[in-house]
C-alpha cells in the first residue's frame, strides 16, 4: 500500500462511513474492554485486540467500542475481555485467544449467546441481581 497521508485517512473514513452507517446495527452500543495490563500483554492481549478488529471488520461491524483497561484481577486466565452488549449480562471472558474472539463476535455480539467455556466472571451475579434481564 502506498504511504497514506492524514488527509487520505480522513477521506477513507468519510467513504466508509457513508457505505456502512445504514446497515451497521449489530454492534450498536456494544463495548469490548480488553485487559491490557502487564499480565494481559504477556498472555497475548494484543493478538486479542488485533483479532477483534479483524473479525468485526470481516462481519462489516464498525461501531463496537473497543477499549482497554489494566489488569482485571484475573491474571491466571489472561487474556481477559469484558463484553458489554445490550440485552446480555455483562460478561468477563478469560483464556481468550483468536478462536475465542471469533466465537465472542459471532455468538455473543451477533447471536446474543454466551460463549460458555470462557466465562470467568459477572453473568451469574448480574442475572441474580437484575432478575435475569
Amino acid at each position: 500500500m502506498a504511504k497514506m497521508t492524514v488527509e487520505d485517512l480522513r477521506k477513507l473514513r468519510e467513504k466508509k462511513q457513508n457505505e456502512l452507517n445504514k446497515r451497521d446495527i449489530n454492534g450498536k452500543d456494544c463495548q469490548v474492554i480488553i485487559g491490557m495490563g502487564t499480565c494481559g500483554i504477556a498472555a497475548g492481549a494484543k493478538v486479542v485486540l488485533d483479532t477483534f478488529l479483524k473479525v468485526l471488520d470481516e462481519h462489516k461491524i464498525t461501531n463496537v467500542a473497543v477499549t482497554q483497561t489494566g489488569c482485571m484481577g484475573l491474571c491466571y486466565v489472561e487474556p481477559t475481555v469484558e463484553v458489554l452488549v445490550p440485552g446480555m449480562p455483562d460478561t468477563i471472558y478469560g483464556k481468550v485467544d483468536a478462536d475465542t474472539v471469533r466465537k465472542i463476535v459471532v455468538q455473543h455480539i451477533i447471536d446474543k449467546k454466551l460463549v460458555a467455556d470462557h466465562v470467568y466472571d459477572r453473568p451469574s451475579a448480574d442475572i441474580i441481581k437484575n432478575g435475569g434481564r
Partner: peptide, 27 residues
C-alpha cells in the same frame, strides 16, 4: 488521527488506523 477519524474507539476507526500506520511502516 483523532481529527481525521473522529474517534479512536470504534472498531471501524481502529481498522482504518491500523491501515494508516501499516502504510507508514510498509514505506
Amino acid at each position: 488521527l483523532l481529527d481525521a477519524l473522529g474517534d479512536l474507539r470504534s472498531s471501524g476507526s481502529l481498522v482504518l488506523l491500523e491501515q494508516y500506520l501499516r502504510s507508514q511502516e510498509d514505506d
